[in-house]
Amino acid sequence: MKRIALFLLTNIAVVLVLGVVCSLLGVDRYLTANGLNLTSLLIFSAVMGMGGSFISLAMSKWMAKRSTGAEVITQPRNSAEMWLLQTVERQARAAGIGMPEVAIYDSPEPNAFATGMNKNNALVAVSTGLLRAMKQEEVEAVLGHEIGHVANGDMVTLTLIQGVVNTFVIFLSRVIAYAVDQFLRRGDSRDSGPGVAYMLVSLVMQVVLGIGASMIVAAFSRYREFRADAAGAQFAGRRKMIAALQRLQSFKDSPSQLPKEMTAFGIREGMMGLFSSHPPLEKRIAALEQAQG
């Protein structure tokens, strides 16, 4: 509930900051004089930017199950499923969160993810490939990593950041587009409303600014992976967490098979660079070894 309140307060704060900045720079007067209502644009940007992210978060568990085919373990069918439930329950208790749903999805790729809008009602899922490729103690560390994501509220925090940058992208792309459109149509008194240039520039700027926004979100996502690794080390043991990451190194050149919307919540990602949601495995291992030292 606190994080939902934070979500709403952040939404309001973003709108207020944009409004104050535009007022100080005189942008509001310019836009209003040329037929664009700043208040309406701010509300539209916040609703579309924050609202879209919030809806995605609210549907995250349902989308994860549908997109991966994950089957929630309700009645354990074998000792492996029983061990998974018991391990997650123990780690969740240690983290002070509610028991998440535990699921298995069919994929040859060794991976796992956690999602959900509430840390007391989350979902932790592991792939069949992970269970085959890793020793039990390494799977335990991976589960601790995912429980760390849930306990840290990473899904909600990432949604907040995504919503904030989305709001800025929508707002700035339209302000820039309107300014360009008015400049190109100066001297034309027949119609003061937006023209074709407004729509084209708005689309282009939304793509350009969206690329920059994606880098910001990815940078935060990489940072939270180190925290989740530390949680995995806390709940399962540092050597187990390091061993799990080392095991994943043999798969580091293969792209993640998780759906795009789930990649940031997985234990690994094949893509590297400014748009990667995960730091290189070498850096994650080095961070754990340094902390141990």
Rank of each mutant, 00 (worst) to 15 (best):
E138C: 07
E138H: 13
E138A: 15
V139K: 06
V139M: 05
E140L: 02
E140W: 02
E140S: 15
A141L: 10
A141T: 07
V142E: 13
V142H: 11
V142Q: 04
V142D: 04
V142A: 15
V142P: 10
L143G: 01
L143K: 03
L143P: 02
H145I: 12
H145Y: 14
H145V: 14
I147C: 07
I147K: 04
G148V: 09
G148K: 10
G148M: 08
G148L: 08
V150C: 08
V150E: 07
A151S: 15
A151L: 03
A151H: 04
A151K: 13
N152T: 00
N152Q: 05
N152D: 10
N152P: 00
N152S: 10
G153F: 04
G153H: 04
D154A: 02
D154S: 01
D154T: 01
D154E: 10
D154F: 01
D154K: 01
M155Q: 12
M155L: 13
M155A: 15
M155T: 15
V156A: 08
V156H: 04
V156C: 00
T157D: 02
L158S: 14
L158T: 11
L158Y: 00
L158G: 13
T159H: 02
T159Q: 03
I161H: 10
Q162F: 01
Q162W: 05
G163L: 08
G163H: 08
G163P: 12
G163W: 11
V164M: 13
V164N: 01
V164T: 12
V164Y: 02
V164L: 13
V164H: 03
V165D: 00
V165W: 02
V165C: 00
V165L: 03
V165T: 10
N166Q: 14
N166R: 14
N166K: 12
N166F: 11
N166P: 03
T167F: 03
T167Q: 05
F168H: 01
V169Q: 12
V169A: 13
V169Y: 11
F171T: 03
F171R: 03
F171L: 15
F171V: 04
L172N: 11
L172M: 15
L172S: 15
L172A: 15
L172T: 15
